[in-house]
Simulated assay, not measured.
Amino acid sequence: MALSQEEIEHALDLFAPLGPLSTRKMFGGLSIYCDGIIFAIVMSDGRILLKGAGPMQTQFEDMGLERWAYTRKDGSATNMPYWHLPDTALDDAEEASALARQAFAHL
């Protein structure tokens, strides 16, 4: 399922306070970049995830955010370095951008 233009615009609006953003479509979803660095993705089902590295991984885990994982063909699980944006940030550009700024600082 591909993202709608409305879903794309919503995600970009959430992160607009970060400054100029660019995007790249991928696997029915979208990657979001600031200064040429990927910091978020929008899954094909509309879920928004932030990239976490270093101390942000611990912070996201402490916040109880769900980490993106998928199951390989051989049945093994693979954790990706992305966490679901908290529900409270899905309609709050200030909160979403603040989390993205923190995460971006560690990429």
Results as ranks from 00 to 15, higher is better:
Glu66Asp: 02
Gly54Ile: 02
Arg67Met: 00
Ala16Met: 05
Thr71Asn: 07
Thr58Tyr: 08
Asp13Met: 12
Pro86Thr: 05
Phe15Ala: 08
Leu107Ile: 11
Glu95Asp: 10
Gly19Trp: 01
Leu30Asp: 05
Glu9Tyr: 08
Gly54Tyr: 03
Gly52Phe: 01
Met80Tyr: 06
Arg47Ile: 08
Met80Asn: 09
Met80Gln: 13
Gly19Leu: 03
Ser76Pro: 04
Tyr33Cys: 00
Gln59Ala: 14
Ala105Asn: 14
Leu14Trp: 13
Ala69Ile: 09
Gln57Leu: 13
Tyr70Pro: 03
Gln59Asp: 07
Tyr33Phe: 15
Gln57Cys: 09
Leu50Met: 02
Val42Phe: 10
Thr78Lys: 11
Glu95Leu: 15
Ala100Phe: 02
Arg24His: 07
Asp13Thr: 15
Ile48Thr: 15
Asn79Gly: 04
Arg101Gln: 09
Ile38Arg: 05
Asp74Glu: 03
Leu12Thr: 13
Gly52Ile: 03
Gly64Phe: 04
Arg24Thr: 00
Arg101Cys: 02
Ala100Gln: 00
Ala53Val: 11
Met80Ile: 09
Arg47Trp: 06
Leu85Gln: 03
Thr78Tyr: 10
Pro20Ala: 15
Ala100Tyr: 01
Pro81Val: 06
Trp68Lys: 14
Phe15His: 11
Leu3Asn: 12
Asp92Ile: 00
Pro55Tyr: 05
Asn79Gln: 07
Leu99Asp: 12
Glu94Ile: 13
Gly28Thr: 09
Pro86His: 01
Leu85Asp: 01
Gly75Gln: 05
Gly54Ser: 11
Gly75Pro: 03
Gln59Ile: 12
Ser31Asn: 07
Ser22Gly: 02
Ala2Ile: 11
Ser22His: 01
Ala89Lys: 06
Leu14Thr: 05
Ser22Thr: 13
Ala69Cys: 10
Leu90Gly: 10
Met1Asp: 11
Leu30Cys: 09
Leu85Thr: 02
His10Tyr: 07
Lys51Glu: 06
Arg67Cys: 01
Gly36Asp: 00
Asp13Pro: 05
Gln57Pro: 04
Ser4Pro: 01
Leu90Tyr: 12
Gly46Ala: 13
Leu18His: 04
Ile41Pro: 02
Met63Gln: 14
Gly52Tyr: 00
Leu90Arg: 15
Leu65Cys: 14
Ile8Val: 14
Leu107Met: 13
Leu21Gly: 03
Pro17Phe: 00
Leu21His: 06
Ile32Gly: 01
Ser4Tyr: 04
Gln57Thr: 10
Leu99Arg: 12
Glu9His: 13
Ala98Ser: 15
His10Trp: 11
Ala100Pro: 04
Ala98Trp: 10
Ser22Arg: 03
Pro20Lys: 03
Tyr82Met: 08
Ile41Thr: 05
Ile38Cys: 13
Ile48Phe: 09
Leu3Phe: 13
Ile41His: 09
Ala93Arg: 14
Leu21Tyr: 04
Ile32Lys: 02
Arg101Ser: 11
Asp92Arg: 00
Met80Asp: 06
Thr78Ser: 09
Tyr70Val: 05
Leu85Met: 07
Arg24Tyr: 02
Phe15Gln: 12
Gly29Met: 08
Ser76Ala: 12
Tyr70Lys: 08
Ile38Gln: 04
Ala98Leu: 15
Glu6Gln: 15
Arg101Asn: 10
Asp45Val: 00
Tyr70Asn: 08
Phe27Ser: 04
Lys25Ser: 12
Ala103Gly: 13
Val42Lys: 09
Met56Lys: 00
Gly75Lys: 07
Ala105Lys: 12
Met1Gln: 08
Met1Val: 05
Met56Gly: 13
Phe60Ala: 06
Leu3Ser: 07
Leu3Val: 12
Arg47Tyr: 11
Leu107Thr: 01
His84Thr: 12
Asp62Tyr: 07
